Computed example of a mutant assay.
Amino acid sequence: MRVFGVVGWKNAGKTGLMERLVSEITTRGFSVSTVKHAHHSFDVDHAGKDSYRHREAGASQVLLASQNRIALMHELRGAPEPSLEELLAQLSPVDLVLVEGYKRDAHPKVEAHRAVTGNPLIAPEDPTIRAVASDTPLDIDRLVFDLDDTVAVADFILSEVGL
């Protein structure tokens, strides 16, 4: 599977860029899945719902299915967080998987950067970052795209992964 990441510090524009890239790339006829890393506890279930009650009762996995979608929740219950590689192996085949986060993994990435955050760039210290999408001009040894130029960033990613 072809994998390309979007990384950056908090409020750098990662999620907005991901959303625009998924829309742009699927409009071109490619199938895309996404993986998002969260640094905090999260819940996609709601208290009182049957699936929540199953999970709270101790189920390791709860599969919720309808005519519109399926959702598989897996409780780690103290087990280590799965690696990106293990998570990718669980996905159905697609043309491209876009990964938000997992900045320390070895897949190629583009860094989202907003000057207003005051955060330093990750790219100078990370050779897996192939380009930066920024809201301000940068003088670095990587390609720099305008953060809002989704078409150019999508062209770059598709070229990088051979699509």
Rank of each mutant, 00 (worst) to 15 (best):
A133Q: 06
L76T: 12
P80N: 09
L91T: 11
P108Q: 03
D135L: 07
A131F: 01
I129W: 04
P82Q: 13
E85V: 15
E125I: 00
E85D: 15
S92H: 03
H107Q: 11
P93I: 10
H113S: 04
N68L: 02
L143A: 05
G78N: 12
A123Q: 05
M73E: 10
I129M: 01
V132W: 04
D141Y: 06
V110P: 11
R142V: 14
R142E: 07
P93N: 00
L88N: 11
M73Q: 08
L72E: 11
V110Y: 10
R69I: 00
S92E: 15
H107G: 05
R104S: 15
I140Q: 01
V97L: 07
L91D: 12
A89V: 00
Y102P: 03
E86T: 07
K109Y: 03
Y102I: 09
T136G: 01
M73D: 01
A123D: 08
L138A: 02
R142T: 15
H74M: 04
V99K: 10
K109D: 03
R130W: 13
R104W: 15
A89Y: 14
S83L: 00
E75K: 04
G118Q: 08
E111K: 03
T136M: 04
R142C: 12
D139R: 10
A133R: 05
L84M: 07
D135M: 04
P127R: 05
I140G: 03
V110C: 00
R142G: 06
V97K: 08
V94Q: 12
V97A: 10
L91W: 14
P127Y: 10
D135A: 05
E85R: 13
A115I: 00
E85N: 10
L96N: 13
D105L: 13
V99A: 14
E100R: 07
L91P: 14
S134T: 10
G101S: 14
L76F: 13
V97S: 08
V116D: 05
V97P: 05
I129T: 04
T128L: 02
R142M: 12
I70V: 15
Q67L: 11
H74V: 09
E81S: 08
D95A: 13
P82Y: 14
V97D: 11
S92I: 09
L143E: 07
E125S: 10
R77Y: 14
A115Y: 14
L84N: 05
E100L: 13
P80K: 09
L96Y: 15
L72W: 10
V99M: 12
V110T: 02
V110A: 00
L121P: 02
H107P: 07
A131L: 02
H74R: 12
A71E: 12
L91Q: 10
P80L: 13
R114C: 06
E111T: 06
T117W: 05
G118N: 04
Y102A: 09
L84E: 14
E81G: 09
A106F: 07
L84H: 14
D135Y: 02
P137K: 06
N119R: 08
G118C: 06
R130C: 11
P137T: 02
R130I: 00
P120I: 03
R104A: 14
L76P: 14
S92L: 09
G118A: 03
R104P: 01
P127G: 02
D95P: 14
S134W: 06
A89I: 13
P108I: 11
